[in-house]
């Protein structure tokens, strides 16, 4: 039995079809009332479907489609929900050229936003989780949508993607939060999605002004080391984490240059999240904007 529902995820809407109960159950659990039965004009039409063929009897698989495209190889069916989340990321990263898109978490206080650009394994999502459940507003765990020629970042609130050890940590810290089922043995290891706090969902149409860029690096043996980056270093690191800046050309380049010229950039090595929060508050939120 296939279901068809719509996700209201400002600034976009998705039509989601699936015949996999695991996907439908996780969508309902994580998105709550953002999942609706009718939308006039969805921006994206995505589906996660059971794969056909003989393999379905001994190792069932799932396939992701965005319109007529199938950007990924089929995955194990128990990974289908994670596949849907990654597929929605793919839709935005490959189609939305009106924004400069950075692979970064975005969190804000008082509408002052900090970008956390980082490659996988840097502890970005663990830090994001901790901050989002300690009074910071989550705008995105995965991608910063920046209005060209501005410091304005548009929220794209979605569940936070946690991997491996961070799953255990998050469940210890926030046992009452809402988690998806585990997708085990993915190319990223074990993966789970965590619904952000209700306050982040409620403000998912409110842009924020970027006041700082922080490149996080989790180090188990380092409580807190902070390095202020010069602007050339900040730019080069930010550009490496940009999804579409090479494609949109001069507007992307100019936007990142203007942004870096106006805000401070730091690289941090840490294992104490409370210290990170204190640093962010004092150095960027209280002083910034």
């Amino acid at each position: 039995m296939s279901s068809q529902q719509f996700l209201l995820l400002p600034p976009f809407t998705f039509e989601v079809r699936t015949d996999i109960p695991l996907v439908a159950d996780n969508l309902k659990r994580l998105y709550g009332n953002r999942l609706v039965d009718m939308v006039s004009y969805p921006d994206y039409f995505v589906s996660v479907q059971k794969a056909e063929g003989i393999r379905r009897f001994y190792r069932p698989q799932a396939r992701f489609f965005a319109d007529q495209q199938e950007p990924f190889q089929p995955l194990q069916q128990q990974q289908a929900y994670a596949m849907l989340e990654w597929g929605m990321n793919w839709c935005i990263a490959t189609h939305e050229m009106q924004y400069v898109i950075i692979h970064a978490a975005v969190l804000a206080k008082d509408n002052k936003a900090i970008l956390f650009p980082a490659p996988p394994g840097s502890g970005k999502s663990t830090l994001t989780t901790w901050l989002a459940f300690h009074g910071w507003r989550l705008l995105s765990d995965e991608m910063a949508l920046i209005q060209p020629h501005s410091r304005t970042v548009i929220p794209f609130v979605r569940p936070i993607c946690l991997k491996n050890n961070s799953i255990t940590l998050a469940k210890q810290w926030f046992p009452d939060a809402t988690y998806s089922t585990v997708a085990s043995d993915t190319h990223k290891g074990d993966v789970i999605h965590l619904s952000p706090p209700e306050s982040s969902w409620q403000h998912n149409k409110e842009p924020a002004e970027i006041v700082g860029v922080v490149f996080p690096n989790y180090r188990s043996d380092t409580e807190m080391d902070i390095y202020q980056l010069d602007k050339t270093q900040s730019f080069m690191q930010l550009a490496q984490n940009a999804f579409n800046y090479g494609v949109i050309g001069h507007d992307g380049f100019a936007t990142l240059c203007q942004l870096i010229d106006r805000v401070a950039g730091f690289e941090i090595f840490y294992n104490d999240l409370a210290l990170v929060a204190e640093f962010l508050q004092q150095e960027l939120i209280d002083a910034g904007g």
Binding site: D230, K231, T232, Q233, F235, M236, A239, G246, V247, G249, H250, F253, A254, C257, I260, D261
Partner: peptide
């Protein structure tokens, strides 16, 4: 673009996408 802190200059080739700092 040369940055306001005097730390350096970045170049961007709009055809190839290559960036240099």
């Amino acid at each position: 673009h040369s940055f306001s802190d005097g730390s350096g200059t970045v170049f961007f080739n709009q055809v190839t996408g290559e960036t240099l700092g």
